[in-house]
């Protein structure tokens, strides 16, 4: 089996996108009635469901902080998320690591001091996996938190970028991700362009880093527009309903 080329000389990626194009993004909020806030997000074939409970009373007394809320993130990948069925244990180190990334990303953004002595639970479920799980999780979390009405300083938009063959490309899919491509995920506050998370896998030449970062940043801005539109549509919809 020969390795297919990830970027054709015509400048098309394996799925027909150009390097600076995102996959098709679909998102909705308020998908679960039980949760305080929830969101469902698709990056192409990567599908993530986020549910936010809280702020509510902390479950363990010992963890309570008297001046602010604590964040609790749990991430789960469905066994049917990839072609081959694979069950992951709850203590899978990669999952725990990813959950802690999400937690760290949001800790500075959520204004936790407004909710002292409480706990905010974020449950993430990856339903289908096709590359870019972390970015999808972060984006879904943002929307779920907004849906739950939890105070935040800004949106958090995440996007991956990587060096595919000879060019920087954003929003890598599973095939691109799994063929030794170096991948950078950044999470950004779009209004201030502050970065709250960068995470990189495998090695990338330092000369190429700037280009990859620039592209990832642009990707975040694009993400922001998509997410913002969904939220606003939803808010307008609610407002209309209230008026009636």
């Amino acid at each position: 089996m020969s390795r297919a080329e990830l970027l054709s000389p015509e400048g098309l990626r394996i799925d027909g996108r150009r390097p600076a194009e995102l996959r098709k993004i679909t998102s909705t909020t308020c998908v679960l009635s039980q949760a305080d806030g929830s969101a469902y997000l698709e990056h192409g074939n990567t599908k993530v469901l986020a549910a936010v409970y809280g702020p509510r009373e902390a479950r363990h007394r010992a963890l309570v902080l008297h001046d602010r809320a604590i964040l609790n993130v749990e991430l789960n990948v469905a066994p049917f998320s990839t072609g081959e069925r694979r069950r992951r244990s709850k203590n899978d180190k990669r999952l725990l690591e990813m959950a802690s990334f999400v937690k760290q990303t949001f800790e500075p953004v959520v204004i936790a001091t407004l909710y002292p002595r409480s706990q905010i639970d974020i449950y993430l479920q990856v339903i289908q996996h096709d590359g870019g799980t972390l970015q999808a999780c972060i984006n879904a979390t943002t929307m779920a938190l907004i849906d739950a009405g939890i105070a935040m300083t800004d949106y958090v938009c995440a996007c991956t970028a990587g060096w595919v063959e000879r060019e920087a490309a954003i929003d890598l899919n599973y095939i691109e991700e799994s063929s030794d491509t170096s991948e950078v995920t950044i999470a950004m506050l779009p209004k201030s362009s502050k970065i709250t998370l960068t995470q990189m896998e495998s090695r990338l030449h330092v000369d190429k880093l700037e280009e990859v970062f620039r592209l990832a940043g642009e990707g975040c801005k694009q993400m922001y527009e998509v997410m913002d539109k969904t939220i606003r549509d939803r808010a307008e919809d609610l407002a209309r309903k209230m008026a009636v």
Partner: peptide
Amino acid sequence: KTNKNTVVKRVREVYLR
């Protein structure tokens, strides 16, 4: 077919431009 001889369904996304 995978290495383990199981048949797997692969889904690939394609964008038409």
